[in-house]
Amino acid sequence: MNSHLDNLESESIEIIREAVATAGKPVMLYSIGKDSSVMLHLARKAFWPAPPPFPLLHIDTTWKFREMIAFRDRMAKESGFRLFVHTNQQARSNGVTPFTHGSEVYTDLMKTAALRQALDDGGYDMIFGGARRDEEKSRAKERIFSYRAAGHQWDPKAQRPELWNLYNTRLVVGETIRVFPLSNWTESDIWQYIEREQIPIVPLYFAAPRPVVRRAGQWIMVDDDRLPLNAGETPEIRMVRFRTLGCYPLTAAVESTATTLAEIIDETLAARSSERQGRLIDHDGAGSMERKKREGYF
């Protein structure tokens, strides 16, 4: 009898193949995090011995952790994927940062708008994302094949019915579909699978002594000298790790001593807070994720 990880793996591979078989021009959003690492691994499995027939796309806000960028370039090389990197240069030259414009405007311009630009430029019609339904309540409502009208808007009230494993992938020019092969995975499934398959992940997930400051009750890592320190803030070295990775000024660390996958899994199973608690942008007002998603965010 198959384990539940085998079932999840087979389901995801089926989804990835189905998308590629019906897509005009597929692409995989690669965010460098643990979910992206699992998704990339599944994509390689789905088409083995052939290389996956689509490129990776990374939206670089220029505020990612340095270790993420190093890891991204290494993985692209080792996995044989073509990697495209896109940054919203207009916003960048206008000096948009999380500090000058606030996290909402920053996320809208450097992530959502940047993503829309990259998808339009590339003419992609099916876009893989690593979102999971257990992450957040509006994601729990999303289809595996999530239809977007021209302009990338998501209308949660007009989602296509999705019965069985039959996906309506018909599109007219300008329309796209976001495909979420990890829809039915949980955080602990992801970690157990990473351990079982020995999938490489960014070292930031493991606890290590890192320079952090305490800000609004959260630990923010001082990844480089661009982080403006508030009055009274002095970086201190703490044993921390990250449950989720994003832009470093907007992603909080948790204190932890977990330095191995087994310890991370133990910590995850015993956790009393959700992994996105450290995502500052999720707390930009009630329903903020749904609003971002409507505008084209993953």
Partner: peptide, 30 residues
């Protein structure tokens, strides 16, 4: 907890299907 869409919370009804995952020592549930 389940009615994750703004429209659902405002109208206090469930519009679309939501998937949740939980486990007990004996079984996993979707």
């Amino acid at each position: 907890l389940m009615d994750g869409l703004q429209a659902e919370r405002e109208q206090r009804i469930t519009i679309d299907v939501a998937y949740r995952f939980f486990a007990t020592p004996r079984r996993r549930f979707v």
